[in-house]
Design a protein around this nucleic acid. Sequence first.
DNA 1: TTGCTGTTGTGTATTTTTTACACTAAGTAA
DNA 2: TTACTTAGTGTAAAAAATACACAACAGCAA
Lengths: 245, 245
Amino acid sequence: MVRPIINNVSVDCVIFGFDNTSLNVLLTKRELTDPESGEVILQDYTMQGHHVLENENLDNAAKRVLKDKTGLENIFLKQFHTFGDTDRLLKEKDQLWLKTKFPMVLNHVITVAYYSLVDSTKIKPDHQHQDSKWFPVNDLPELGFDHEKIIKMALEYLQEEIRREPIGFELLPEKFTLTQLQNLYEVILNTALDRRNFRKKVAQMKYVIPLNEKQKGVAHKPAQVFIFSRDVYDRTKKEKLDFSI
Amino acid sequence: MVRPIINNVSVDCVIFGFDNTSLNVLLTKRELTDPESGEVILQDYTMQGHHVLENENLDNAAKRVLKDKTGLENIFLKQFHTFGDTDRLLKEKDQLWLKTKFPMVLNHVITVAYYSLVDSTKIKPDHQHQDSKWFPVNDLPELGFDHEKIIKMALEYLQEEIRREPIGFELLPEKFTLTQLQNLYEVILNTALDRRNFRKKVAQMKYVIPLNEKQKGVAHKPAQVFIFSRDVYDRTKKEKLDFSI
DNA sequence: TTGCTGTTGTGTATTTTTTACACTAAGTAA
DNA sequence: TTACTTAGTGTAAAAAATACACAACAGCAA
């Protein structure tokens, strides 16, 4: 049974991944060629959102988009802003795209934006093609619609959230080293952190648990391997006591 | 010229005010009486959102609602979440209300929620009636739709935001005392603060500026009066340096 | 087997920030 | 003049943040 779409409300999902070097965003290529000359007349990237369906909750729509793009379920997903400027689809190239490919879409679509954090090593192979590609969030390609603005804002919200909640782990494989974790924080917060001080901090986090296991296949001293336990976190968080006033 | 409404998208605005004792929310009474018996069959409060208009930006819709409810413009306004659950208007009493009063409204309306901070002493007299009333956010009356959920979430976002940005001043008159400011923080953060330590903190905030002026008409030592300067704040903020990792 | 390479893992001293705490000053009203 | 109420202030102790350098380990190449 196919449910009809709500034609003025969509969901966009900024999919963040981490490759030990940079924080990346998964984007989908958009391309138009002139049917006569075969010339490429439009080429850029977008997040390829989806319209919300009749009788579908927003969060479910976001999960659906994420599943579609990555094949993954039960992924960290956070709504952060809704974009509804009346001119957000009106740039010439975007109108050209919409008229050509989606003539039924309105000129004013409100999009509810989410960001998600995925362990990019987990993305299933059949989702690797699809004209989808990872781009460093600090070095984005040309983007369609208002997607650059959306991604920039997603990053800002992520930077705030990661100071409050242990969500960085969502971007790492289940087992990780402290250096990986530190790199992650450095990249997201865009700052250098002292290794010893960082480790002291992590040592206080009872929910970051060392395993009796070492890194393998590296040509240097292998690091100890850790896991994150949401269980322990939930049981020990209590009060966050970080009043900044 | 009246623009038509977008019938599945609305804007709700949680209007916060402060009366030196509690943080309050401005709510509007909703009432239905049986046309025959005259008996009250529905009575509660809502935020009385408005639908977004064709060709209207979301932020402008929120400003319009705020203007309508308070008579004020240029007020602090922050979008914090969009609520789109399919069942959010389906409670029996809400359906009764909608069918009676707004038969054209759909069963599934997505609402973009904002919160605003107003100096409640500024609300113009002609906006005082209107069945609108202030309620302490910790002691809300019975509410319609999902408005309790929305208000609770607004408070959470406000609590986060006020730790990062100097937005508390929006709730105070232009001139205020440090005790007022402290009460405000205590009420919003729901915690007790030490007076001396609080004042030390504020003393570091160059944008909280003492005037050569004292409180008047109080039966005790009058307090010094301060103003907040957004100008100074903007010029001195630079880096926030509050990395919690 | 030895040594080279590259990364891991660790402790301490200093500075900064946060916390806890109690008395005098100023004005009004009786 | 006194009583009442809130304003305004400093210091010591504890906790948190910062800065900083070297030995240990594994793989690899000679």
